[in-house]
């Protein structure tokens, strides 16, 4: 059992980050996926994670959504520990109750959308607000219809996912996640499973969110142009660590590390 005494029970001060990974470790058996990761994301910041496959970038998002457990360190969301909870003046691993409480701050969109196939687009969006947040059906419908309007899917609200294209499904999935009013939104390779011609409709929706909402966002993507356009900061992951990070202009325009240069030129060649 690791010593958790050096981790604060709560983050305080003037500029508490919305998300903090502190000394986070993740391994599967002998394979280390993340190696003492430290990463802060400020409120309202859009951080994009890039890197070769197997570098642990998706794991970062999945840990934050509590889909993966962590083997060391603590993750904080909005100043409070997510993976742990205070008990008797120190941190102990979170129980299901604590996780349920803290997960309310986080929303996620997946590579393969993961819409519920037995529900229409509207029902997908209303599901969480009604059954988890306890809204009335009318409230949930209003909220969901507004969001479907925002992502341009209001015309298809009564369709089941099987009748929608990939791009349309992903837009519904974004509306579904937003309907929970999260503080942090996670986008895990949301364009990777899409046909090239519909990628734009999804990236445009995300662009709109960056412009109009004060959401904190973490995104994993292979769309370098998109990352460059919308990110406040880009992190290049390599072998479970942040190899280099900076503004898009710096990282894409003037990468310092050799591995970053190699990766970026390989990606450029592929395009």
């Amino acid at each position: 059992m690791q010593d958790l005494s050096r981790f604060p029970l709560e983050l305080t001060g003037d500029d508490v980050p919305m998300v903090r990974f502190q000394q986070v470790r993740k391994s599967y058996g002998s394979l280390t996926v993340l190696d003492n990761l430290d990463l802060d994301v400020a409120p309202g910041e859009m951080v994009t994670i890039i890197g070769p496959s197997g570098s642990g970038k998706t794991t970062v998002l999945r840990m934050l959504m509590t889909l993966e457990t962590i083997n060391g360190g603590v993750i904080y969301v909005d100043g409070k520990p997510l993976t742990h909870m205070p008990k008797g003046g120190k941190l102990v691993p979170a129980n299901e109750r604590h996780l349920r409480n803290r997960r309310a701050d986080i929303g996620m969109c997946f590579q393969h959308f993961n819409l519920f196939p037995h529900m229409t687009a509207l029902e997908n969006c209303m599901e969480g607000p009604v059954h988890v947040l306890g809204l009335t059906k009318a409230e949930a419908r209003d909220r969901s219809e507004d969001l479907l309007e925002l992502v341009g899917m209001i015309d298809k609200k009564d369709q089941h996912p099987s009748r929608l294209s990939g791009g349309q499904q992903q837009r519904v999935a974004i509306a579904r996640a937003l309907a929970m009013r999260p503080k942090v939104m996670l986008f895990d390779e949301v364009t990777s499973a899409l046909d090239p011609e519909v990628i734009g409709e999804v990236t445009n929706v995300i662009r709109g969110l960056v412009d109009e909402h004060n959401l904190t966002m973490l995104m994993v993507t292979h769309q370098m142009g998109f990352a460059r356009d919308i990110s406040d900061r880009v992190c290049f992951f390599y072998a479970g660590r942040i190899e280099e990070q900076g503004t898009p202009a710096d990282l894409f325009g003037n990468p310092q590390k050799e591995r970053t240069q190699q990766f970026l030129s390989a990606v450029k060649e592929a395009v």
Binding site: M65, T66, L67, R100, R103, A104, I106, G107, M108, F110, H112, F113, N114, L115, F116, E127, G128, H131, V132, A173, R176, A177, M180
Partner: peptide, 11 residues
């Protein structure tokens, strides 16, 4: 993914 989406909705 259905389990994960349900977790993401905090069910």
């Amino acid at each position: 993914g259905q389990w994960e989406a349900a977790t993401a909705l905090n069910m």
